[in-house]
């Protein structure tokens, strides 16, 4: 509806099938006609899908990854490598701490944080960049961590909700969210707070209507929006450094 800000939509498996090869272009034509989706599960399509997934994953890695990934990819376009997705060494700073990691190229920043580093404050709401629950800062910019492969963040400074407070002292935005009740279930909250901080830093918090616009990439299903606006406005007016 109004001014919806969807950053991007991650392609899903079925979309991939439909554009992966000539064989699957046929599948697309059939699909647009009377053939039911079950045809996709035929062996040949599955193999095509598998081949495509292997290739596309590697192509993505080749396109986006630092040299180490490329090297790994070149070393084996075979079954084994495609399946194992050889891990890639990389370093990035997370909440002020330098991390030397070994990750699969296909691992998103979100899954890295949640599943490997136990930084579960960053939430998975949709995994397609449509809800904003996974918002973190990369070199100070807000990003949807579900749309970012970890290998794309080599050398960057990542800040998550766990890294926002200074010691025991809450960040002013965290304190304001409590004071103004800017949440209910709390699940979208880390993303809202990270987005709210960025909103002020970007200079997009000069009026309530401007905040509404620039906070519209973060969905709150509980409907805490009015209080989120109050919290961000209060922090902006409070003048504290965010």
């Amino acid at each position: 509806m109004a001014n919806r800000k969807i950053v991007a939509t991650k392609l899903r498996a079925n979309d991939l099938i439909l554009c992966s090869s000539n064989e699957n272009l046929m599948a697309k034509e059939e699909n647009s006609g009377k053939i039911l989706p079950e045809s996709r599960t035929d062996k040949k399509y599955n193999e095509a899908r598998r081949t495509f997934l292997k290739q596309s994953s590697l192509l993505t890695a080749l396109a986006l990854a630092p040299p180490a990934v490329v090297k790994a990819a070149e070393a084996g376009l075979d079954e084994k490598v495609a399946d194992q997705f050889e891990k890639v060494p990389l370093s990035l700073e997370i909440n002020g701490e330098l991390k030397k990691l070994s990750v699969e190229p296909r691992t998103t920043l979100l899954d890295l944080l949640r599943e490997q580093l136990d930084l579960t404050g960053t939430k998975k709401g949709c995994d397609y960049g449509q809800c904003g629950a996974c918002t973190v800062h990369a070199d100070g910019q807000r990003i949807n961590s579900c749309l970012s492969l970890t290998v794309m963040q080599e050398g960057k400074k990542i800040t998550t909700i766990e890294g926002l407070a200074t010691g025991d002292e809450l960040h002013p935005m965290q304190a304001a969210f409590i004071e103004y009740d800017g949440f209910q279930c709390g699940y979208c909250t880390p993303g809202q707070i990270m987005s709210g901080v960025a909103c002020i830093r970007e200079g997009h918090a000069n009026s309530e209507s401007e905040i509404r616009e620039y906070m519209s990439g973060n969905i709150c299903r509980c409907g805490a929006y009015p209080n989120i606006i109050k919290a961000i406005t209060a922090v902006k007016k409070g003048g504290k450094k965010v």
Binding site: M1, A2, N3, R4, K5, I6, T9, G125, C126, Y128, Q130, C131, I211, R212, E213, M215, S216, G217, N218, I219, C220, R221, G223, Y225, P226, I228, I229
Partner: peptide, 15 residues
Amino acid sequence: DLADYHVPINADVPD
């Protein structure tokens, strides 16, 4: 998905 199934966003909600 949440791009095609629309739920209210911040800009949809007044005081």
